[in-house]
């Protein structure tokens, strides 16, 4: 059957949820092969097979981890050259999109980013201009390269062979120019990752000060949600920039998005508008966020949020 390559996104070998989503999606288009780059493949193989990878290409040698995007595109180009897949699916993350872009140049193939679905014939569905238009597009030259947003498909297991194939890579000098000297982690642990979470609770300038993010965290924890923030909140240093939602932060598309004390500026909307259900709490009835909501509360968040959290906890314990 036609081979569809899926680039594995992983943390020290543990595949991220988006990888399992892409394998699930790939099964509807052909036979998925996972491409694992970096260290830790042994931790990944079982999971990749469980979600339908017939083959797992592993490129783990050398010092691949010291470099960023360019070597990944080189590895993929090498595999595409060897096995001629019908398409390459890549997670639509900042790095994934860059890998896709470089791969497109190498293969002289079309690239489509931020797909929210891929149909027969590799027709990609996108939502553009902050959700104002639904677009479907396709690649007319080369091997379709499509980046797919997290949360676009529900991951479902479908065990397959997961046969390992080692890929030996010789990186070009050009791919080794940008070298990683250090990796700094600033993220707060414990909660689901923002782009992968089913529920996201975000706080904005309405919180008044950083310590009040405790209200947001408490609400998030009552729902098992991830915590997001508007740029006003990250710029003020109230919450880490890694949690910023919006045009220059992360794009999220959860089942439920809760905007607390956020006005709904266009740059914020750009990162959350495709969420399935949207609710907001804001004391200004004119706040633009209310144009998007399924349910909104006009009121002071310092009254509404504690009551809401308490109510959710009560319902969970009864």
């Amino acid at each position: 059957m036609a081979e569809v390559l899926v680039l594995v996104e992983h943390v020290d070998g543990a595949p991220k949820k988006v990888t399992l989503e892409l394998l699930t999606l790939a099964r509807s288009l052909g036979e998925p092969s996972a491409v694992f780059i970096g260290n830790g493949a042994d931790n990944a193989k079982a999971k990749l097979a469980e979600y339908g990878a017939a083959k797992v290409y592993v490129a783990g040698d050398g010092d691949l981890d010291s470099y960023l995007v360019a070597p990944k595109a080189e590895v993929l180009a090498q595999i595409v050259g060897a096995v001629s897949p019908v398409a390459v699916l890549i997670p639509s993350t900042p790095e994934g999109k860059e890998v896709a872009g470089r791969l497109a140049v190498k293969l002289d193939s079309g690239v489509i980013t931020d797909a929210v679905g891929v149909d027969d014939g590799f027709v990609a569905r996108q939502s553009i201009f902050g959700g104002a238009f639904n677009v479907s597009s396709s690649v007319n030259r080369g091997t379709p390269i499509i980046t797919v947003r997290p949360n676009s498909t529900a991951p479902e297991p479908a065990p397959a062979a997961g046969a390992e194939e080692q890929v030996s890579v010789t990186l070009s000098d050009a791919a080794k120019k940008a070298k990683v000297l250090d990796r700094i982690t600033e993220k707060k642990g414990g909660r689901p990752e923002l782009t992968e979470a089913a529920i996201v609770v975000s706080g904005g300038r309405g919180l008044g000060e950083g310590s009040n993010f405790a209200l947001i965290e408490k609400l998030a924890d009552s729902l098992g949600a991830a915590v997001g923030a508007s740029r006003a909140a990250t710029d003020a240093g109230w919450y880490p920039h890694t949690n910023q939602v919006g045009q220059t932060g992360k794009t999220v598309s959860p089942q439920l998005y809760m905007a607390i004390g956020i006005s709904g500026a266009i740059q914020h909307r750009a990162g959350m508008q495709t969420s399935k259900t949207i609710v907001a709490v804001n004391k200004d009835p004119e706040a633009p966020i209310f144009e998007l909501v399924d349910f909104g509360v006009v009121g002071d968040l310092f009254n509404v949020v504690p009551q809401l959290t308490e109510e959710i906890e009560k319902r969970h314990s009864s």
Partner: peptide
Amino acid sequence: GQIVKDEGDGGT
């Protein structure tokens, strides 16, 4: 969407 004004029961 449905928009309600908090009358002391907005959270509920």
